[in-house]
């Protein structure tokens, strides 16, 4: 019995070690000389440009065969890129600052998505139910606010909104709830407010909810919210591929800016958002370049809230 137990433990340990080391992928050559490239994305509005880019052939024209893998959040994508499972990933800026400040060797290679910069017309906001006593950002002090990830872009920017409106953010009870669960939790009254992005913002509005803070707008002008990134190793070893990828993304971003209806249409192919909501939701901005000042502002906000163990090196992160 004991010997079997020992053998079983050893085998389990060996299997576990083997499984984790086998997770090292990397690029392979695709058909016809094109590079097969895997990208980890979150299936949300923000990544519509990359889907458009595939559809329009911007990647194929640059000999890139893209394979997109949908993940639930940055928490799965960053480790995936670091382990070599994905060549590129999509993640919000604060997550990238966190990773970089913890010693993960990653770099932004292309812009992803930005705030529209216009309060009242942005793709992310803090929502409350119709009958909520909360009217402005300052009223959020001491409230329970749902965010999709703690110690990340949501809570740091919401705190800034509260500060700008003259409130005290230290008493806010941030709680982590997945975006899809937020409308129900808000209606049920389990949270006082929820920071959401589209399409959940439109879903909550359809149920009578209203926005009280535009945290992306408040954090910094023309805030870069998320970007595409890769390991420093890839940037050094294959700068040509990285450049081609970045160019294709830039072309995709431009196409998305010029063709908002195409963005709404392509959303139907990789999400379950209904046609009504797709038509109603506020689209984000897709500028071609990362706004460096806004990245530094996010780093400052994060440091003020103490989410970094070491100060992030913004220059090392940016392309």
């Amino acid at each position: 019995m004991r010997r079997t137990l020992a053998l079983a433990s050893m085998s389990a340990l060996a299997l576990a070690l083997a499984a984790t080391t086998a997770a090292c992928g990397g690029e392979e050559d695709g058909a016809g000389g094109a590079d097969a490239v895997s990208v980890g994305v979150i299936p949300i509005v923000d990544v519509a440009p990359i889907y458009l880019g595939i559809e329009q052939g911007f990647f194929a024209a640059r000999d890139i065969e893209l394979e997109l893998t949908a993940a639930q959040g940055g928490a799965a994508i960053v480790p995936g890129v670091a382990a070599g499972e994905f060549d590129f990933g999509f993640s919000n800026i604060t997550s990238l600052l966190l990773a970089q400040s913890s010693g993960l060797p990653i770099e932004i290679v292309a812009n992803g998505v930005a705030s529209t910069g216009v309060a009242g017309e942005d793709f992310g906001a803090v929502m409350v139910p119709a009958d909520s006593p909360i009217q402005t950002a300052a009223d959020l002090a001491d409230a329970t606010v749902a965010v999709n990830t703690l110690n990340n872009i949501g809570d740091t920017t919401v705190r800034e909104s509260v500060r700008i409106d003259g409130g005290d953010p230290t008493g806010i009870g941030f709680t982590e709830i997945a975006f899809p669960d937020m409308p129900a939790q808000l209606s049920a009254g389990n949270v006082d407010a929820a920071w959401v992005v589209e399409p959940f913002k439109s879903l909550i509005e359809a149920e009578g909810g209203r926005p009280v803070a535009w945290n992306y707008v408040d954090a910094a002008p023309d805030l870069t919210v998320a970007a595409y990134f890769a390991t420093s190793q890839l940037v050094q070893e294959d700068p040509d591929l990285v450049q081609r990828f970045a160019d294709a993304i830039a072309e995709s971003l431009q196409y998305a800016t010029d063709n908002p209806e195409a963005v709404r249409d392509i959303l139907g192919t990789y999400t379950d958002i209904s046609p009504e909501i797709r038509a109603a939701l506020t689209l984000p901005a897709f500028p071609a370049a990362v706004n460096k000042d806004s990245v530094e502002r996010l780093a400052e906000l994060g440091e003020a809230d103490g989410i970094f163990e070491n100060p992030p090196d913004v220059d090392a992160l940016l392309p």
Partner: peptide, 15 residues
Amino acid sequence: QSGLGFAIVQFQRSY
């Protein structure tokens, strides 16, 4: 907002 499991997950999220 607190807990052993919560702490482990948050550590993972913040690298």
